[in-house]
Write a protein that binds this DNA or RNA. Structure first.
Lengths: 324, 324
DNA sequence: GTGAAAGCGCTAACAT
DNA sequence: ATGTTAGCGCTTTCAC
């Protein structure tokens, strides 16, 4: 494969002139420019990115860390990131982590080694103390409430969000409220547990640990979830389900079992996925696609000079449909 | 940031020794090795990937070209690719193309510029004539019936697959069969149209262009699809729907409209997505996740020496559930 | 076992 | 406007 030196030789100019032409710099005589362009075409030449990146100190790519590519939550987030990245002409390097810290670290090491210009962390298993130091090597954006001053962040207030959902159910007469969680230990789960406890205390209702239902991720988990609820002696009258796909799984099982929704069980979903519109599910819209877009823009602004570390809370809304 | 030269100086050895230690080569005295390791740790040094990639002529990354990241078909394919890539320690560079050829070309140019070691094409808008030349710059794998000898391929026989679906419906007594398509002009769509025409001819049934329903991608499109069918004077008794998400959208609309499935309308979906299990949808399993995995392995085998261009047809199966 | 030195392919400061 | 040259940070002969 030809290199810039060969182009220079055959075009009868110096390497710097070739480089100038390649990079669209001014101050090159028209005829020389043409000679270079002709030679480039004739030799079917193209630049070696690795050399360019080495000398420029940047890779032109950013990393995206996410646990599961096939989960609707992350798919929506990624959709927002991708859309903006496309716009900005930045390539994304994807890493599916399965929440394994060694994979998260692997990606961050890539940042440190200048293989990446920045990293968006959609969700993580890594402790803040281990994540934070990597901020020294390039901008980091997390899609959650930040546990460090060194990273940019976009997130919603899960505590307030969950209270709002509970309050909505309460106003509709529900006193016996349960809820599902994904990983029980994530920071959003903790915020939700706290909101749950606070609201119950405010209403002087007893907290029931049995109505906290972790481990719900998929549409199948939703079907199981209904079965778990039906098996209870004391059942909740309403469920807040984190993830519309779980709620839809529950609804489809409810149809099979003859459980009426919202008559027998009211439902609020999370994410406002396309599927929730189809099944007329009342849901919290946490603006995931926008969040992804915002995450990318925050990163990109830091990369292009303008822009500091920003930690921004994003709005959410409750979309009223027919399941409450 | 320190470089290898600085490490060498402070450790009191030569750069080559440092390089040897860094790359785990043998024939380095234990004490020198330790001195290097200590200095590396002390200066918090790490290699510059761009320099390594420049000299090695490889990037350690492969590109993945896909039109829509949020579509279940591609999400499943990507899941398979990702799983294998993880295993092999290869990073994926993702490009959502929206079927825009300039984006596809952009990624392929990256291959040519040694920014990528190979590319998996999940689906494309680019003509074969424009894609083929890039095979000279690195292995290419397509996930469809190949239109060039220069690329590896994994694919299923859409023609046979569609015939099998039609035959299944025929054996169950259906004579009036319609079908949906995504992009009407894709190569799989063409195969399906051909299978449709051939089967109808074989049964001496008239072909009805009105029962070919393109433009169906989403769950919402599925709901629309039912409405289109209900508005027909002559309705099909069975529908083959390319994409389970479309079929599920149709089913949920059917429930609202009081249309019984399979009583009033039989349904066969495609992809065998998780959602199809939940809704008990009879579907063609085209092994998308396996296909993604196979695509990656084919690429990786070429990259690691063993392995030539392989074009492999993959099996499919019909999963009988309750919608026929 | 170890080091010197020659690149990998490119950009940009500097000189003209 | 154009050329010369010094790197960017690393790997890898080759010689000792």
């Amino acid at each position: 494969m030809a290199n810039i030196k060969e182009i220079a030789r055959q075009a009868g100019v110096s390497v710097s002139t070739v480089s100038r032409v390649l990079n669209g710099h001014p101050h090159v005589a028209q005829e020389k420019r043409q000679a270079v362009l002709d030679t480039v075409r004739r030799l079917n030449y193209s630049r070696n990115l690795n050399a360019v990146q080495l000398i420029k100190g940047r890779s032109g790519m950013i990393g995206v860390l996410l646990p599961y590519i096939h989960h609707p939550y992350f798919t929506m987030l990624l959709e927002g990131i991708t859309r903006e990245a496309l716009e900005a002409g930045v390539q994304l390097v994807l890493c599916q982590t399965d929440y394994r810290t060694e994979r998260e670290v692997g990606m961050l090491e890539r940042l440190r080694m200048k293989g990446l210009d920045g990293v968006i962390v959609c969700s993580r298993a890594l402790e803040w103390e281990r994540l934070e130091p990597y901020a020294a090597f390039g901008p980091l954006v997390v899609c959650e409430r930040p546990g460090s001053k060194q990273v940019s962040a976009v997130y919603i207030d899960h505590y307030r969000c969950f209270r709002e959902a509970m309050d909505y159910l309460h106003r509709r007469g529900h006193r016996r409220i349960g809820f599902s969680l994904g990983r029980g230990g994530s920071s959003s789960s903790r915020e939700r547990r706290r909101a749950y406890a606070d609201m119950l205390a405010k209403w002087s209702e007893p907290a029931r640990e049995a109505w906290v239902l972790p481990g719900c991720f998929t549409i199948e988990d939703g079907a199981q979830l209904l079965k778990r609820v039906l098996a209870m002696n004391e059942r909740p009258t309403a469920l807040i389900v984190t993830g519309d796909e779980v709620a839809v799984g529950l609804m489809s099982e409810a149809a099979r079992q003859g459980v009426r929704i919202p008559g027998d069980l009211a439902l609020i979903g999370f994410d406002n996925q396309p599927i929730s519109r189809m099944f007329d599910l009342t849901a919290i819209d946490n603006g995931l696609t926008d969040m992804g877009g915002a995450a990318f823009r925050l990163l990109h602004e830091r990369l292009t000079g303008r822009g500091e570390i920003v930690q921004r809370e994003l709005p959410f809304s409750l979309v009223e449909r027919s399941t409450v």
